[in-house]
Design a protein around this nucleic acid. Structure first.
Lengths: 337, 337
DNA sequence: GTTGAGACTGGAACCGGTTCCGCACTGCGG
DNA sequence: CCGCAGTGCGGAACCGGTTCCAGTCTCAAC
């Protein structure tokens, strides 16, 4: 309610001095600063961000663009971002974009442009060339989580390596007939992640001397329900049943495990399953998985943003996060038959 | 980049006229309006929200306060809110608050105050008296989803009735030994929802002539993992095993079903389970549940907010949403023994 | 004793829109 | 023919901060 002018009057100083005192700038005596701070506290003064950003051009607000909110990976990332931003005194504007081109255009050409955000974090959004151009034209720091953006900072695990690691684990246990359940070959708009995990699987198989045909990769929606449906489909026929499955995400892996149980297939005795993520539920299902920590990725992305803002320069780092395999009880050597 | 002044100059009119033309105000000739619009389009003009809100006091931004992001109910609500806000040309600032009192105070006394939001939507946040006072002091529309706030608008299902409905379904099937898995009796900070669902269970049981002792309600975390752990605990002993369980949410119910499977208990033959929510996964687990549509609740909350903003008055409606029981395959009459 | 550097402070311009007010002009009723 | 309402438009004030610039004062150095 109260304005800086009132605080200044109450403290017996000018608006200029009051502003300097509150913002921590130099050239204000300790006595004055204390008096202004006391007045501000007494009057319950909170600076209007509109006024401040009008003149400084900085809004203390970061835009987050994501295709999903409730899926585990995305939710965790967003929570990590939110925590870190709040700590830094920033708030977060959330924009959800999926395939709808009209909506995407509105977000990129209108919402992100109206001088409301200091920076943008994209979470697993594959951007069209025009969208990349629009982001670059903002002249503001941009960090992509989980999907690199040409020419901008990114933060991610090496998806190819993660999938390779998961596959190698199964190979080292002696599995021969391994199926990948995840994205399909054609690179979908939103997710090169999917294509890369498939590629990692193929690399590992090829290195081990396998020649997987198309039937060794099954496409699925990236949810528990998707993994379940696909699992029922690919595990239904005992003749063609794989001895192990690499799921492109833990949610898919959990769906597959549930499908196996439904079909009376024992995990890991009859079927080994490995995922990627280390989802909250992985422990409960005893799921062997490649661990990543999306919440930390969110925090780190904010760190990169803040460094860039403080340095007043738009840098472009490419950060790859470490991977670890967590072996639980969903994988074992194949049953000798 | 380009300012209103430049657009005005380019169109050969004054700033005042340009502003009126673009905002759709009256007293501008059609010809002038078209010329200004053309200039604005040509220069790629997008009004600075900071400048606009500095003078109008309106920001076209709504704050959303929620304890969780990735749990199903919350994620769905947030997605619904986001869609509706984007449609209305608003964006959404997300604030996550849980128990940490320092963080809560920062959000309520600082972030929400700095003239950055036109309205606030709370999602299942039980507010302290000071927090309610802080929200009221904003003088802005506030809508609470899933948890009523004294004196402010709210939008929710009748949690007591929902739980009663679920319980009556089991009673009507002939179950005698019914256990509630959900919140505990003491009203937790964040969730009167939990207490109300427990109360609904008790009402139904009492009406049916039962006298449930404390052992007929088990407390749990409201997640699949929580339901699983609690399920293992309460189903472990065949002597005390209930014939049916009312879970306070579908996530809990799914956890209970998984625990039952693990223990070799057949659902619904040996155990009926009913939930509340109609979660995405309910179909897959054949879960009988009381349906609510959180995404629609999010959209409706935005509708209430917009109506209040348009009317320039802070009204206080209390909207209760309809409930429907969806019977699937997780419930049946108890096995005669 | 004068000078100059540096710390403090106030006045005023400024960010980029919105809106009040006044003026010119048109058209209609009396 | 005059008065008056109503439309279309421009000038200028204004929202509430930040920051440039200039002025005062202190104090050490010459």
């Amino acid at each position: 309610m109260s304005s800086l002018a009132e605080v200044a009057r109450h403290a017996g100083v000018s608006k200029a001095t009051a502003s300097r005192a509150l913002s921590g700038a130099a050239h204000v005596s300790d006595a004055t600063r204390a008096r202004v701070a006391a007045s501000a506290a007494e009057l319950g003064f909170v600076a209007s961000t509109s006024a401040a950003s009008l003149v400084t051009g900085r809004t203390r607000n970061v835009g987050v663009v994501t295709p999903f909110i409730s899926r585990w990976f995305f939710g965790e990332v967003i929570e990590g971002i939110e925590e870190a931003l709040i700590d830094a005194g920033y708030d977060l504007s959330l924009f959800r974009v999926q395939e709808d081109p009209d909506l995407r255009q509105r977000v990129f050409d209108y919402f992100l442009v109206r001088k409301r955000v200091d920076a943008v974090i994209t979470v697993c959004v594959a951007l069209s060339p025009e969208e990349i151009r629009a982001l670059a034209a903002l002249g503001k720091p941009v960090v992509g989580i989980g999907g690199g953006i040409a020419g901008m900072s990114s933060l991610r695990i090496d998806d190819v390596a993660a999938s390779r690691l998961a596959t190698e684990h199964l190979l080292s246990l002696g599995h021969q007939r391994i199926l990948h359940v995840g994205g399909d070959q054609e690179e979908r708009m939103d997710f090169h992640v999917h294509a890369q995990r498939l590629a990692g699987f193929r690399q590992a198989m090829a290195t081990a001397g396998h020649r997987p045909g198309d039937d060794f990769a099954a496409a699925t929606e990236f949810t528990i329900a998707g993994g379940f449906a696909t699992g029922l489909r690919v595990l239904g026929n005992p003749a063609t049943r794989p001895s192990a499955i690499v799921a492109a995400s833990d949610e898919v892996a959990i769906g597959v495990i549930l499908a196996a149980r439904q079909l009376g297939i024992q995990v890991p005795r009859d079927l080994s399953v490995v995922g990627i993520d280390d989802h909250d539920l992985a422990e409960m299902f005893g799921l062997t998985t490649v661990r990543q920590v999306p919440r930390a990725q969110g925090r780190d992305a904010v760190g990169m943003i803040m460094a860039s803002i403080d340095a007043r320069e738009i840098t472009s780092h490419d950060l790859q996060l470490p991977l670890t395999l967590r072996v639980r009880s969903s994988t074992s050597a194949p049953q000798p038959d």
